[in-house]
């Protein structure tokens, strides 16, 4: 998701009223229907892959309900081998979700005016999709900060219910590799990566990430190559922003 200065330019002035009420929640619910079609199919895939990775139905639902962050959950499944690399999974989750820090920071001009509970309950439900929708509302001059909560609640329902259904349907699949399903992880990650493409500036960081990951996969145990490649590539990207 590209971050620009645009939303900041529309930051509210101190004398403008900012509301947080049910009509804002409802607006968020209504306008999130299209994104939830995507979220639902994505959740089905997650449920199916969670089964293949060996998660029980309860464990799958717990992860979708408590973590509630698609890309990092898929990444965790990719790391899901016995014995479970607990620390690697948690650190990788942190790395994958660092973008949420930026998104939360961009909400500051509006959310700094909410009370403790309004802020920290709403933010649990912040996803890429709901955040983008909310920012577009603010940019249009709408001043109801409960929009994020309404949108986030619908995404939460779509994501967790689809996880449960996918996890259950997944039981139909017997031998994944015969059907090419061992490639499903890689395919999902590739599709997610395509969505992250922002332009030429990504070329060098991505090449560095790939090379470092390939080298690290040769020399380091487990899945540390993901952290090595991810950090090396992103640092190269940051270094090029020398100004």
């Amino acid at each position: 998701m590209r971050l620009t200065n645009k939303p900041m330019d529309n930051a509210p002035h101190n004398d403008e009223p900012l509301s947080f009420n049910l009509s804002g929640v409802w607006a968020g619910v209504k306008q999130s229907i299209p994104i939830n079609i995507g979220v639902f199919t994505y959740g089905l895939v997650f449920g199916i892959l969670a089964r293949q990775a060996g998660l029980s139905l309860t464990e799958s639902l717990l992860m979708s309900g408590l973590v509630f962050a698609g890309a990092s959950q898929f990444t965790a499944l990719g790391l899901w081998v016995a014995p479970l690399p607990v620390l690697t999974i948690i650190l990788t989750t942190l790395l994958v979700n660092l973008r949420l820090l930026l998104m939360g920071a961009v909400l500051h001009p509006w959310f700094s005016r909410l009370n403790f509970f309004q802020r920290y309950v709403s933010l649990f439900f912040m996803t890429d999709e709901s955040w983008a929708l909310t920012m577009s509302q603010f940019a249009k001059g709408k001043r109801n900060a409960a929009f994020l909560l309404g949108s986030g609640l619908t995404v939460f329902v779509a994501w967790t219910s689809a996880t449960g259904i996918g996890r259950t349907i997944g039981s139909v699949l017997q031998d994944p590799s015969r059907l090419g399903l061992d490639f499903a992880f890689t395919a999902v990650f590739i599709a997610l990566l395509v969505g992250l493409w922002k332009g030429k500036a990504d070329i060098l960081p991505w090449i560095v990430a790939a090379i470092v990951a390939l080298i690290a996969a040769q020399w380091l145990p487990g899945k540390w190559y993901i952290l090595c490649g991810g950090l090396a590539g992103s640092l190269i990207g940051a270094l090029r922003h020398a100004d």
Partner: peptide, 21 residues
């Protein structure tokens, strides 16, 4: 520069997962 670094991470982490696969 910190903002730039954070913005590159989701992409580079996914590339690192995919390349060996």
């Amino acid at each position: 520069r910190m903002e730039a670094w954070l913005s590159y991470i989701p992409g580079t982490v996914l590339v690192a997962i995919i390349a060996p696969e």
